[in-house]
Design a protein around this nucleic acid. Sequence first.
RNA 1: GCGCGCGUGACGGAACGGGUAGACGUAGCGGACUUAAAAUCCGCAGCCGCAAGGCGUGAGGGUUCGAGUCCCUCCGCGCGCACCA
Length: 895
Amino acid sequence: MPSARSPAEPARIPDPGPFRYPWRPSRAPPMQDHYEPAAIEAAAQRHWEQAGTFRAVEDPARAKYYCLSMFPYPSGRLHMGHVRNYTIGDAISRYMRMQGRNVLQPMGWDAFGLPAENAAIANGVPPARWTYDNISMMRRQLRSLGCGLDWDREVTTCRPEYYRWNQWLFLRMLERGIAYQKTGTVNWDPVDRTVLANEQVIDGRGWRTGALVEKREIPMYYLGITRYAEELLGALAALEGWPERVRTMQANWIGRTEGVTIGFPYELDGRREELRVFTTRADTLFGVTFVAVAAGHPLARHAAASDPALAAFVAECERCSGTEAEQATQDKKGMPTGLTVLHPLSGRALPVWVGNYVLMAYGEGAVMGVPGHDERDFAFAQRYGLPIRQVIDVDARPYASDAWQPWYADHGRCIASGRYDGLGHEAAVQAIAADLEAAGHGGRQVQWRLRDWGISRQRYWGCPIPIIHCAGCGAVPVPDADLPVVLPEELVPDGSGNPLARLHSFVDCACPRCGRPARRETDTMDTFVDSSWYFLRYASAGNDASMVDARVGYWLPVDQYIGGIEHAILHLLYSRFWTKVMRDLGLVALGEPFANLLTQGMVRNAIYFRKPASGRIVYYSPADVLLETDARGTPVGARLKSDGLAVESGGIGTMSKSKQNGVDPQAIIDRYGADTARLFMMFAAPPELSLDWSDEGAEGAFRFLRRLWKVVHVHVTGPDHPPLEPAALDAADRELRRLAHQTLAKVGDDYGRRRTFNTAVAAVMELLNAVGRHAPATPAGHAVVHEALELAVLMLAPLVPHISHALWQALGHERAVVDEPWPAVDALALRQDAVLLVVQVNGKLRGHISVPVDADEALVREAALADLNVRRFVGSLAVRRVVVVRGKLVNVVAG
RNA sequence: GCGCGCGUGACGGAACGGGUAGACGUAGCGGACUUAAAAUCCGCAGCCGCAAGGCGUGAGGGUUCGAGUCCCUCCGCGCGCACCA
């Protein structure tokens, strides 16, 4: 996903000032000679807790940095995706902290949702109990991971003190008409008598009952996100800190299309009506030979009322159209309604068909059929024997209606179109739109793909919608003074409808308007509502008097948001919308909540399975499989450890329960420590790419930390050394020192600008390898090693904070490493006398030359041409040109 | 079908603005240490070749002194999504 490469950190990093030499030749307290992660991780975490290190306090004098990872759904245990997400966020947070920023890194729980109800159905435990238990478990796991989180700002969306503000803002939207009621279609399980989520419908049947799912029209609440379509689309361009890919996806989802709405007049029961369609190809209007409507279109329903065959077809269309994707894959089918409409310009009569490929939700729910120039209409016309008419000419190419050619859909000049003949695409669209408008049959229009956001869910474990239904007054908003409408937490759903609806103490109430007995709304809100503003609440934590307060002005926008690519559309779009609504209500000053976005890749693992003759595939955990390799290490087969028999490889896939290829992060933390888990996650791949789990890789990360520990141990138990004097070093010491500062410059760039933690780790590994090879001959040499080790520990501190905490102490420091500033690069250390240049002849590598760093081009050229191997390859050829790239290479062009 | 990406050793990946392809790690091989194994340390390691050298970044073409990187065509894989009219 390189297009989604992390953007540059736009904020200016303060100048750290001149380089200082902070070392004291003090002896550190005695150091354990073995790396024992459990003990040092507990000690480091205890220190942060006692010092309140990560408690964020607003301070207008300091530049803030709001680093936010998407909060988890409390499903039970942390999975590797969480570990990756929170390690990336923590690394960025700790790095920015070292840069002197006032960092806020909060955490919370997206605690409402369907899995809690499913668990309740399976185990008979109230969703609340299950959810709160999971939260305690996962909070403990997050602490053991060592994330620098401000737990004082924890947000739990299933708590009334949070969701009361969902209700409060919903009422404000209702007052302004942004929230409104209309009917919507839901999946109805006739056996369980309950509404099913899309994911609970499998092949058109209810997941528990297997009953054929029916469609039902029920009243629901909607949020008018389409009013913000223009702004949501337009503002994308300014979100420079977002991956291009996500912006494109959102733009496609919002889907702005310019076209023409065309009304086809008809008479029905003596009344003059118009069938409206939307098209981007108004220039093909004279090629229309039929009009197709969606199964849910009023005309289709009208015709079906008196035609049983059509009624059956309409019912069939409606049954299988669970999702739009599903509808997209089915065979294109249709049926005539027997009705006709008139062409608005030619007056010709056109048949009206019902087509299963026409979407009720987009445009007008009807399309004009132009088989001559639309591939889908062409197939439809061929199947049902409808006329095909050419009305666009492209370079006088011969048109034949027996087979589709791709160029039929190209723009060209109108023919057989009366007075529009000869016009090009744009001119024809203009002219036809103008004439339609003059005739009162339509005109130019902008169409959006985006639809309003239906938030009603017929489910228990969610935020109650604050409405009371009164026989006399209708749907009455709950008065602000009566908020929150508290969700009772002791109910246990059993799969047959919403248990709230059967709880009289919840449902029975008095109408706030007339006082007569009334019924409380039992629908709850879509959980995307909860996650649409939690990032604002972190900045207003604990405020019982208002939804948000002035602290939002300090912390927002989020400087860095980190989460999975699967949220690229819905969550991020809803959050942007919600923020804009709050802005328009005067609650916040900002219009976009997330300045920079990092979408992390999936965590994957190998998949192994057997497919027995009985047919059902059985998956095996990679931990239970032994790989066989040939002499070169190429895998040739795999066997199950338990029975020694072969298993098939299913490649690599996202970790999932169904594929049995998940790895429990807790097991890794228990075995190697949190630092190893974190280091492996950050080293194995750049954050935006998918990451493949590898036991050996985790082992390798652990090995590196153990070696780091050992190198520091050997150093601090070695001879004393004087303070570093950079000016008086021998060549080898100077070289190590140059590498150390070069590495520091690279790692700072990798963390801050590129967000490529994997290459930063590789660079520190190289530095440590060099330190291991370096045999200091003098006390001054030990001072250089000391500096290199200190820099290594500081550089690794954002990634592996626990071992860094311990090693920093061992190197003789009283202040905790977490409070240290990011070290400054010593420009003097980077200075080199000579530089090695690559020499090519005709673009091929033929040698290297060493030249003074300030050598001019003539000197470099001369040195290159003097090189023996260069002379050998140039031979008798004439040197036509010598390209010199300063500090890099010389290319001798000969021929 | 459309849109957006991505194809580099056995594997994960590196190569940042067109300038030494394969950093770093994993797996592998050889050696040291050990009664032995593990751990650790040292070394080898893209392919062909004794070497000199040649060939190599999915395939083919182009631009350039120079292409993994830019452009075109094709193939494969992944993700997203609309039969969007």
